[in-house]
């Protein structure tokens, strides 16, 4: 049986995905979102309430309310009106600074295990995943062990895209000729929907993939099976993948063109076509 058959159907609905994180990054982001909103509501709710209460109290029909048409300045209130929002923003700025550094996507995650490297190529309109250490590749689905950091190295051979698995963490751009690193780690097993978040042409909406987190032993089993896949990905077949197509079924490649990822990235760094071999700019492989 083709091991990817089970993945042809999308994972079950995740509901409010952002509030049901299944990874450390998404959990950190969720906590930041909740804290920041509560902090702001602390000021905003009383202000909105005051606006309506004061508007009602000082309605023209209310004879008992004071009327002072020339009252237009009060030093204490002015300082308060600048000070209160400044205070809230100061607290938020601390959150912002710390959040930006703690949850910086290119920062390695704390773990006793070395990260699994997965190279991601955004194509029109499918996702190619390359496992440089395991020497296998997949299309439109990606599998990795739980509780081990994954370093997604993102690039594109297509219009600019944004790689997003909401339940595992936030987005990162995938751009031609460039590599962005995004560290994610699943805290439990499961299947999560991932996809394209940046408009990139006709097949944008259908450009989804399934991200599957499994136990370490299941991952080894899967890898062994993947190595037995009858399909490979030579450069000529890769070029076919770069042609526009939608809803391609998931696929597993037991081998791929040596240096495939670097070759893809370097296409866009080359001088004019035909003026020599492209320079490889990525170290190692």
């Amino acid at each position: 049986m083709d091991q990817t058959d089970a993945l042809r159907t999308a994972p079950a609905s995740a509901g409010l995905a952002l509030f049901q994180p299944k990874g450390v990054v998404a959990t950190g982001e969720r906590n930041l979102i909740v804290t920041a909103v509560l902090l702001m509501l602390l000021l905003v709710v009383p202000v909105v309430a005051a606006a309506f209460i004061i508007a009602y109290k000082f309605r023209a029909g209310n004879q008992r309310a004071a009327y002072d048409p020339n009252w237009d300045h009060n030093k204490f209130l002015q300082s308060l009106w600048w000070g209160l929002p400044a205070l809230v923003i100061l607290c938020l700025s601390v959150l912002t600074w710390r959040g930006a550094h703690d949850l910086e996507p290119s920062k390695p995650l704390q773990s006793s295990l070395p990260p699994l490297v997965v190279q991601v190529v955004a194509l029109r309109w499918k996702w190619l995943f390359i496992y440089p250490e395991q020497k296998v590749a997949t299309l439109n689905f990606v599998e990795f062990p739980e509780n081990r950091p994954v370093r997604f190295e993102l690039t594109a051979d297509a219009p600019m895209n944004s790689f997003w698995i909401p339940q595992l963490g936030g987005q990162m751009y995938a751009m031609a000729g460039m590599v962005n690193n995004l560290y994610l780690m699943a805290s439990q097993t499961g299947e999560f929907t991932g996809g394209a978040a940046e408009i990139n042409g006709r097949g944008f909406s259908s450009m989804k993939f399934t991200a599957k987190a499994v136990t370490a032993s299941d991952f080894s089993v899967w890898l062994a099976a993947a190595k037995q896949s009858p399909r490979g990905l030579p450069w000529s077949d890769y070029l076919k993948l770069t042609q526009p197509s939608e809803n391609d079924p998931p696929a597993v490649y037991s081998w791929y063109e040596p240096g495939l990822y670097n070759k893809i990235v370097a296409q866009f760094m080359a001088p004019a076509a035909g003026s020599g071999e492209p320079q490889l700019i990525m170290p190692g492989m």
Binding site: A26, A36, G99, L103, P166, G170, A197
Partner: peptide
């Protein structure tokens, strides 16, 4: 303002 925090924006972008 929530989205002005980069780490939150990664989840809200687009």
């Amino acid at each position: 303002v929530l989205m002005s925090s980069p780490a939150a924006d990664f989840q809200f972008h687009n």
